[in-house]
Structure formats: structure tokens, C-alpha cells
């Protein structure tokens, strides 16, 4: 304390760095993650803001002569190798076999796909975090909850998902309308069947955190369990949760598309990318673009989300950060 005057406060003092700034700095270093984040943002923008610029109605089915004129249009780039192709600048990606605009359908399909992914991820995250924290924090619950998790991990998920979709589709359709019913069903099913990994990771971290000094200090001043969990434990398990959140979006999108592809997902007039792919498979020899665009959209989205998850994992790990 005696040599305080020697220090020039302006040169010594550094503004305390926010943890999230450090994370962002590390994240930026991961080139794949940065590109992935940009691409994901671009897809989100195209899908959700695109319809504001591109006014075609994805549901509009032309009739009469217009139908003959508009159906089965090829994408505009088809002219390059086939000068006689039926194209129109009004429909850049062409139209489907009943004349609906492909680009508009891709946008509305993407909205559903991404929303399903986000919602299912949120559900599985809430379930996984709750079960993980409960199992890690309360010793009495640990055994039963982890056995329960193991049992869920041993279930054959895809077959059960298919069966469950078939069983509950009709009652939910009656309750919430066709679109709402299927949406609720798919989101719930994916959420309920994908929380196990999160729960395991969170439990492991909570077990380690529970013995740390700051938690013991909080307990010794009489903080109730609820507050210890909310104030001290949850913020510290945020990083694994965030990583599994990003990876959860990717797997939810893939699961939803797989269900739609097998014909157990969304109805054709309320398509997702998976459903668009499924509907076009029969005619893919004549119109390969109808398969390639939705498939590409799914793959690129999932790839970018996976890269974001990868970068986030590195950025949130303090051992790697700063290297």
C-alpha cells in the first residue's frame, strides 16, 4: 500500500473485460464458426425477411389456362444448358407441378423448419437442464433420474417417433387445427426425445460445482436451494448448455426433416424443407432442382449451426481461450 503513489492510475488501470467479450474474441478466431454464423444469419434473414421483398404467395395455386402456363416451370439458370426450357424471371426457382412458386415455398418451408428446430431445442434444453440440475444438486434424486435418463437413451427413438406421430396426429389436429397440431406434436416429440445428453452434461458440471467454495459459502449464509441453483449454479453451467443448444438446433432440424421425408411430418400444403424434398423425390429425374434446393438448404443450415457449436465450444472453454 505504501507505493501506491508510484503507480500512474491511468496506465495501470485496465477496464475489467467482460467475459462475453473474451468469448466473442475467441469465437472470432474460429474461422469456420464465424463463416457458419454469417451463413446462418443470412439463411434466417432470407427465410424470415425474404417474403417481405419477394411477394409470391406460396399457397397460391393457379387455375385454368394460367395453370397450364405456370406449372412445372424450370429455374432460370436452366436456360444455360437447355435453351427451350420453360422459365420466367417472375419465378427464379421455377414452380412445382401444380404451379406454386418454388422460391416462395422454400422460404415458408424454411420458416417452419427453423422454427421447429428452435422450439424443439428450447424444450429439450429446459427438460435437460431441469433434470440435470435436479440430479446433480439433490443426491436423493440422482439415482432415479439418471436411471431414467439411461432408459430413455436405450429407447429406439426413430421408430418410436414414427409410431407416436401416427398415434397423436389426429387428436391434435382436431384440437389445434392441422398446422398447429402437427407443429405442437413434432416439437414436443423431438424435445421429449432429445434432452438426455444435455441432462448428463449438466449433471456432471453441477456435481463438480456443488463442492466449490462459493456454493458452500452461499449455503452457509443460509441461502435456500432454489436461490443457490438460480444465482450460483445455473450461470456457471451456461456454457455447456449453450453448446448443446446450438447442436440441438441442428439435430432437431434433421429429425424433423427425416420425419417429413418419411411422410410422417408436416402436410404438403404446409411444407417444411424435408416435406418439399419428400414431395419431389418421385420426379427428381425430370426436375432435379426441386430436390436439390430443399436438401441443400437443410444441409447448409445444419452445417453452419454445427460449425457455430464447434466454435462456441472452443470459445466458452477458458482453458482454450487466449491461446
Amino acid at each position: 500500500m505504501t507505493d501506491r503513489t508510484e503507480l500512474d492510475p491511468a496506465s495501470q488501470y485496465q477496464a475489467p473485460r467482460n467475459q462475453w467479450l473474451d468469448v466473442w474474441d475467441q469465437f472470432k478466431k474460429h474461422r469456420g464458426a464465424l463463416i457458419g454464423a454469417l451463413i446462418f444469419l443470412f439463411i434466417m434473414l432470407g427465410v424470415f425477411a425474404g417474403p417481405l421483398i419477394y411477394w409470391q404467395d406460396p399457397q397460391y395455386v393457379p387455375t385454368g389456362r394460367e395453370f397450364l402456363k405456370l406449372r412445372d416451370m424450370r429455374p432460370i439458370y436452366a436456360v444455360i444448358w437447355d435453351s427451350g426450357a420453360k422459365v420466367d424471371w417472375a419465378h427464379p426457382l421455377g414452380t412445382d407441378n401444380i404451379g406454386r412458386d418454388a422460391l416462395a415455398r422454400m422460404m415458408s418451408g424454411g420458416q417452419v423448419s427453423i422454427t421447429v428446430g428452435l422450439a424443439a431445442m428450447a424444450l429439450s434444453l429446459v427438460l435437460g437442464t431441469a433434470i440435470g440440475v435436479l440430479a446433480g444438486y439433490f443426491r436423493r434424486l440422482d439415482g432415479p433420474l439418471m436411471r431414467f435418463t439411461d432408459l430413455f437413451l436405450a429407447l429406439p427413438l426413430l421408430p418410436l417417433l414414427l409410431v407416436a406421430v401416427l398415434l397423436f396426429r389426429e387428436p391434435l389436429k382436431a384440437g389445434f387445427g392441422i398446422e398447429g397440431g402437427v407443429f405442437i406434436l413434432i416439437v414436443t416429440l423431438i424435445g421429449v426425445t432429445s434432452w438426455m445428453q444435455t441432462a448428463r452434461i449438466v449433471r456432471g458440471d453441477v456435481l463438480a460445482l456443488k463442492e466449490r467454495e462459493f456454493v458452500i459459502a452461499a449455503r452457509s449464509i443460509g441461502a435456500p436451494s432454489r436461490r443457490i441453483v438460480m444465482r450460483h449454479i445455473l450461470p456457471n453451467v451456461l456454457s455447456p448448455i449453450m453448446v448443446s443448444a446450438t447442436l440441438g438446433i441442428a439435430s432437431a432440424i434433421i429429425t424433423e426433416s427425416a420425419l417429413s421425408f418419411l411422410g410422417f411430418g408436416f402436410p404438403p400444403d404446409f411444407p417444411t424443407w424435408g416435406r418439399l424434398l419428400f414431395d419431389s423425390v418421385d420426379r427428381m429425374t425430370l426436375y432435379p432442382e426441386r430436390v436439390i434446393w430443399p436438401g441443400l438448404a437443410i444441409s447448409v443450415t445444419v452445417l453452419s449451426v454445427n460449425y457455430i457449436g464447434d466454435g462456441l465450444r472452443d470459445a466458452l472453454d477458458p482453458r482454450i481461450r487466449g491461446r
Binding site: 427425416a258 436438401g295 445444419v302
Partner: peptide
Amino acid sequence: TFITMVGFSVPPFFSGVLVIVIFSV
């Protein structure tokens, strides 16, 4: 790493359809 990432992310119903379009069509 990039290829494994792609293999992770491309769902089989798309890679399958894609190889059909390329190799058999």
C-alpha cells in the same frame, strides 16, 4: 475436419437423393 462436418450435417435422405441424381440419372 471439414468433410467429417459435412458428413455429420448432410442428412442421408439428401445425400442419398443426391447420389441417385448424380450417378444414376
